[in-house]
């Protein structure tokens, strides 16, 4: 449904997108995550036909964005990260204008506008001026606007940015509902856990390059190449430290307070089981042996820091 082929965007010597190859299948909710300036919005603007790539191309629903931009516009609904609204319009008039811009008849518009306002929980604001809506309401209205022509593909650039927690949850619920409607959605955020909850697949972009892609668990696996293990012993701290330092898969052993020892472990799960069994047999006075579960945020921060260093 969405495919980018060697998508590259350069601004003089600066490369905003570097040979981006991405595939999003039909009906998938794809999360595009990266720090500010990683290349998310550039990718979305190219997909929305607002910017030409320097090299490469992209396809949406089989249509090439560089060759058929007019047709592409009819199959996409685009919500930019920063957008303005026509303040002097009422919510329903705002949607009516965009409906007519997509060629919907008066009858079609009068049918679809109440449905969309209901979808984004704004039915009660039908006759309110856009100017008077809260930021969260404006975001939801803009989302409804992007759906006015029933597009197959939704391109949502940080739709929850700047929203308070409640508004974020409301936005997330609406997106889940859109997912059940079978829309193909590509959505960006710089907060990985936020996307993890609602996306089928995730792509991590950094400095214009796609550094990982797949399901949430795939991403965690791809990015988390090294485990962290914390061990607590009741006594004989020095002996225990030496024991773990002797294992070839253990790195960076550090002593902590109250008999804790923390180290990195490169081995497989099977090897980890063997290490624990050996520790028990060697009379290491273990109170606990616990791998630290890194959350997606930590993994993302770690990997993007590594790319930046490189």
């Amino acid at each position: 449904m969405i495919e980018t082929v060697n998508l590259t965007k350069k601004y003089g010597a600066f490369t905003a997108l570097d040979d981006l190859n991405l595939t999003v299948s039909e009906g998938t909710v794809f999360g595009f995550v990266g720090q500010n300036g990683a290349g998310k919005s550039t990718t979305f603007q190219i997909l929305a036909t607002l910017m030409a790539p320097t090299y490469g191309t992209a396809y949406i629903n089989g249509l090439e964005v560089t060759k058929d931009p007019e047709k592409v516009r009819r199959v996409i609904g685009y919500m930019p990260d920063f957008f303005g609204v026509y303040d002097q319009f009422k919510a329903s008039e705002y949607l009516d204008f965009y409906g007519s811009s997509y060629g919907l008849s008066q009858r079609e518009r009068s049918e679809v506008i109440p449905q969309l306002l209901e979808l984004v929980n704004l039915s009660h604001k039908h006759d309110s001026y856009v100017d008077l809506l809260s930021r969260g309401m404006k975001q939801r209205l803009c989302l409804a606007r992007s759906l006015i022509h029933d597009p197959k593909v939704l391109i949502l650039d940080e739709p929850a940015s700047g929203l308070d927690p409640r508004a974020r949850i409301e936005m997330r619920e609406i997106l889940k509902e859109l997912k059940t409607m079978g829309k193909t959605i590509i959505i960006s955020s710089h907060i990985l856990p936020e996307l993890a909850e609602m996306c089928d697949e995730i792509g991590v972009i950094d400095h214009g390059k796609l550094i990982a892609t797949g399901s949430v668990s795939d991403i965690q696996e791809q990015l988390q190449q090294q485990k962290e293990i914390v061990v607590t012993v009741s006594r004989e701290l020095e002996k225990s430290v030496r024991f773990f330092e002797d294992d070839p898969d253990v790195i960076n052993v550090q002593k902590g307070p109250n008999g804790t020892i923390q180290f990195g472990y490169k081995g497989s799960d099977e090897k980890q089981q063997v290490l624990l069994k050996k520790a028990v047999l060697d009379d290491i006075p273990l109170l606990s042996f616990r791998p630290i579960e890194k959350n997606l945020e930590d993994v993302f921060m770690e990997i993007t820091k590594e790319v930046e260093k490189a």
Partner: peptide
């Protein structure tokens, strides 16, 4: 300047 242009340009209007 009002950031309404990108949205307008992604509509079917020529």
């Amino acid at each position: 300047e009002r950031q309404t242009l990108p949205i307008l340009l992604t509509t079917a209007q020529s």
